[in-house]
Computed example of a mutant assay.
Amino acid sequence: MTEGWIPEDEWRTIVEHAPIVSVDLLVRFNGGLIFGKRENEPAAGYWFIPGGRVQKRETREEAVHRIAGEELGADVRIIESLGAYEHIYDTADVDGVGGKHYLANGFVVEAESSNLVPDDQHSDLKIFSESPEPLHEYVRQYLQDASTLPEWP
Rank of each mutant, 00 (worst) to 15 (best):
G73E: 02
D95E: 15
F107T: 12
R140A: 15
Y89Q: 04
T59G: 14
G83L: 03
H101C: 00
L135E: 11
G31H: 02
H17M: 04
W152H: 08
E86V: 03
D145H: 00
H65W: 10
V108M: 00
Y138T: 06
Y142T: 04
Q141M: 05
G52I: 09
G52C: 05
A92K: 08
S131D: 10
D75S: 12
E58A: 11
D145W: 01
F128G: 05
F128A: 07
F29M: 02
R53F: 05
Y138H: 11
V76Q: 07
P50C: 10
I79Y: 01
W11T: 06
P132K: 13
L33R: 04
T2W: 07
A43R: 12
I14E: 11
G4R: 03
Y89T: 01
G32P: 06
G69P: 01
A84V: 00
Y102W: 08
I78W: 05
L26S: 07
P19A: 13
V64M: 10
V94W: 03
V54Q: 14
F107S: 09
E62S: 08
S131T: 15
G52H: 12
H136C: 12
P132F: 06
D75C: 06
N30E: 15
L143W: 02
M1C: 04
D9H: 10
D93F: 14
E8W: 09
S129E: 13
W11V: 02
D75N: 10
R12H: 07
Y85M: 00
F128T: 05
D124Q: 15
P7A: 06
D95C: 07
L149K: 03
T2S: 10
L143R: 09
F48V: 14
A84E: 06
W152N: 01
H136N: 11
R77Y: 00
V23T: 02
D120A: 13
W5A: 13
L26W: 01
I79P: 00
V23L: 11
E16Y: 03
R57D: 15
R12V: 12
F128R: 07
L72W: 09
A111R: 05
G45I: 10
E16F: 01
F48S: 09
E112H: 06
R60H: 14
I14R: 13
Y89F: 15
E71G: 12
I20Q: 11
P50W: 09
P134H: 12
A74Y: 08
G83F: 01
E61Q: 14
R28N: 02
Q121S: 14
A146H: 05
A63R: 12
A74W: 00
V54H: 06
I127M: 06
H136P: 07
G83H: 00
V139D: 03
N30Q: 15
I6K: 04
W5M: 01
P150I: 08
D124M: 14
E39L: 14
E61C: 09
S22N: 02
G106N: 06
G4V: 02
Y142P: 00
